[in-house]
Write a protein that binds this DNA or RNA. Sequence first.
DNA 1: ATGGTTGGCCCCCAA
Length: 268
Amino acid sequence: MSDQIIVATWNINSVRLRQELLFKLMTDAAPDVICLQETKVPDELFPGDLGAQLGLPHVLMRGMKGYNGVAIFSRFPITIQSGMPDWCAKGDCRHICAKMQIGNRQIMIHNFYVPAGGDVPDREINPKYGHKLDFIAEARAHFERHPPVSSILVGDLNIAPMENDVWNHKQLLGVVSHTPEETTGLNAWRNAGFIDAVRHFVPDNEKLYTWWSYRNRDWRASNRGRRLDHIWVSRDFRNGLAYYRILTNARDWDRSSDHVPVIIGLNL
DNA sequence: ATGGTTGGCCCCCAA
């Protein structure tokens, strides 16, 4: 017998402002696990009973004042995995790792918020870009030293790695999120032991987006999207991949995030 | 080449 677990990832862009939208996510996708990025709230101010109200009572969070912040809501008990690296020694809140026991299987869930990287794709001029490249290089090195098993890695990775992960490949080659340095780095990280769970289902020549800028009058009409939000699974989970969903309609939810939820069903 | 919008917080920063 195999259990199926449904995992969602979403850059919610302030969990306090948009917590009501999580109930829509529950209605539409019935996830067992929700991983959030950009919660933008210190732990002591995190909405305390939100998880219980969602029916996902096991909650881990790592937040700070004003920006960054990640959280995991789960239907099943989870415990934090301690001893993870402090990426780029910044002490910021861009990663949380949970262990989950389902039956006799122990599953690891990594929730990442990769630095956006600023505007100029040159680390000499723009330290944020250097931070981003260093972050993904460290993450790659970590998973090469510790190859993932029974692991799910999700998050806003802030990189659209493939040509059809952006609305115009040539035009975005010099734009942070789609530069060759970033896409090469992200692919190397993934190849440390993961499969792109969404591209597992969707051919490379098909456009896929999870983010549309706020700076468009009509995001759906212009459709200048990028696929910045990802779900990867370790190679031992390949045969368990059951389905994926990108909740594009969430971009039209009331006061929406600029990112939409990405979901997979995984048979364990 | 530029501007466009949003959230958090304390007036400008990060995205």
